[in-house]
């Protein structure tokens, strides 16, 4: 049963991510990214990470993707989007990486059944049934300092986005602010 779920989620994730790259209209790309986010959330549920599945849907699908769609519609891009001339470099980079991944996985596949999972199963460490409680306790004890740093990152990103995206003060009504200040004096 879990294999059925995995095959479904993995297939949909791969198909949606290929569509993100392949579709020419950015709105369609963003919508197939939405499909991919939902299926990643489903995969998280099968991996006993229910809290992260909820956060994935709320933050990624609810906030980040809406931001993307806003910008796509603000900019009103015309559909002259062809593929980049760097596709040869892309193939040159990605084909060896794919081969490397296959070699690594085929080498490590036979040892994976007797890996750390078997060693850890004997120890008393198990994932708590209440995933949100366990994540909260881990986050506020072991990872307290990174958590604070993450909040600082968000603050810096917010200020940076405002500074980058806003117009210069007085840009709209007067293209040359120096003249205006002299006239005001």
């Amino acid at each position: 049963m879990s294999q059925l779920f995995f095959v479904y989620f993995a297939g949909m994730i791969i198909a949606a991510s290929v569509l993100v790259v392949a579709l020419k209209n950015p709105v369609y790309s963003a919508l197939s990214l939405l499909v991919m986010f939902f299926h990643v959330a489903g995969l998280f549920i099968t991996l006993h990470a229910e809290f992260l599945a909820a956060v994935q849907i709320i933050v990624y699908a609810g906030a980040i993707l809406v931001l993307y769609l806003f910008v796509v519609m603000i900019l009103n891009v015309k559909q002259d989007d062809r593929y980049h001339s760097q596709w040869r470099i892309a193939g040159f980079v990605c084909v060896p990486l794919l081969i490397e991944v296959m070699v690594l996985l085929s080498g490590g596949a036979e040892t994976s059944t007797t890996g750390p999972r078997a060693a850890l199963a004997s120890s008393a460490k198990t994932i708590a049934p209440d995933n949100t409680l366990a994540i909260g306790q881990t986050l506020f004890s072991t990872y307290l300092f990174p958590f604070e740093v993450a909040s600082l990152v968000l603050l810096v990103a917010m200020i940076g986005a405002i500074v980058l995206a806003k117009r210069e003060i007085g840009e709209q009504d007067n293209p040359n602010p120096m003249v205006r200040t002299k006239a005001a004096e």
Binding site: I14, S17, V18, V20, V21, P26, S29, A30, Y68, V71, V72, L75, V77, D81, R82, Y83, H84, Q86, W87, I89, A90, V93, C94, L97, L98, V101
Partner: peptide
């Protein structure tokens, strides 16, 4: 890898 290919071949910044 799909993401890498997308970064390298797309010409739209949003993509």
């Amino acid at each position: 890898l799909t993401g890498i290919v997308g970064v390298l071949i797309r010409r739209n910044i949003i993509a």
